[in-house]
């Protein structure tokens, strides 16, 4: 068996070499064409956003560099839309929900992984059951609830529903369950409180999972438009994505300005992604959840 493998292997690689070179070249060409198809719309959008003339007439043949590059469209876009305010809103909402989601997921995950108390299975099933309830099922009653509580058009409405969730709890429970009990037991013998063990031993050991969860939550909350559309109607409270969606529907005839708005909304996200791409891709793949 091993003998055949040893003798067969060099033979096949030798035989395949010329064909292999050709297939490598074909694959590279196809992959580069695919990548160009991914980048081209972004680049075209960016180039058009720099053209003042784009608001009046667009060249019939797509141009990938404007004849009249200027930041005019960006000036108009920032005058039309309080982009700094939108960013501040998005950062606040995404920041607070992410911290809350991580904290409560880890806290519940720790209780489910290491705690011993009556009713654990039932409580865990309640948390898990939320995984099977799509947000869309409950969005209208949730909106009515927020409205009854007088929370519409407040940051609370954008934050409160997303502070805890079954997915994060489940992921944290799986991670914390793999921490050896001896480690926690040693701390208990030293007299550390359960919360101190959680804060000083468990959390630092969960950094990779926490990072995954943080990345996913940032993507979810940053890109969400459905919920902000329901609960906020004041411009001062719009998130970036919501502001972009509403601006895109009203200023659509000014191509240059609309695209400049879109560029301002996505450029920071793209830069953050390019810096963190390794972690972002790994988070999405390892958790099996789409961003």
């Amino acid at each position: 068996m091993t003998e055949t493998a040893l003798t067969a292997k060099p033979a096949t690689t030798q035989r395949r070499l010329p064909a292999d070179w050709r297939s490598q070249a074909t694959m590279s060409v196809m992959l580069v064409i695919g990548a160009a198809a991914m980048v081209l719309p972004f680049w075209w959008m960016f180039a058009t956003s720099l053209s003042r003339k784009a608001n009046v007439s667009m060249p019939r043949t797509p141009s990938f560099w404007p004849a009249d590059p200027s930041f005019f469209n960006y000036q108009v876009a920032t005058a039309n839309l309080p982009i700094v305010q939108l960013y501040a809103n998005s950062l606040l909402v995404v920041g607070v929900t992410t911290i809350g989601y991580l904290f409560f997921s880890a806290l519940a995950g720790y209780a489910f992984a290491k705690g011993r108390f009556p009713g654990k299975s039932v409580l865990f099933i309640i948390f898990l059951a939320t995984l099977f309830i799509p947000f869309e099922t409950r969005m209208i009653p949730l909106y009515l609830m927020m409205s009854d509580l007088g929370l519409t058009n407040t940051y609370w409405a954008l934050i409160l529903p997303f502070l805890a969730g079954g997915f994060g709890t489940f992921l944290m429970r799986q991670t914390i369950a793999s921490i050896p009990d001896e480690l926690l037991e040693a701390a208990r013998i030293d007299g550390a409180s359960e919360f101190r063990i959680f804060w000083q031993i468990v959390l630092p050991l969960c950094k990779p999972t926490l990072a995954t969860l943080a990345i996913l939550n940032v993507i979810w909350r940053w890109n969400d438009v459905l919920w902000p559309l329901l609960v906020t109607s004041k411009r001062e409270l719009f998130t970036v994505t919501q502001g972009l969606a509403l601006a895109g529907r009203t200023q659509g005839i000014y191509t240059g300005v609309a695209l400049a708005t879109a560029v301002m909304a996505i450029l920071p996200v793209i830069v953050a992604y390019l810096v963190l791409q390794r972690y972002v891709i790994r988070s999405v793949v390892s958790s099996g959840v789409k961003g």
Binding site: A35, M45, V225, T255, L259, A265, I266, V269, G291
Partner: peptide, 23 residues
């Protein structure tokens, strides 16, 4: 190449829709 293919995944569906409205 992976990084490039994954790029639209990070862009909000709203921004992509605005872009494709013009595409």
């Amino acid at each position: 190449l992976k990084v490039i293919y994954f790029l639209p995944q990070l862009t909000s569906s709203v921004a992509i829709a605005i872009m494709f409205h013009y595409v």
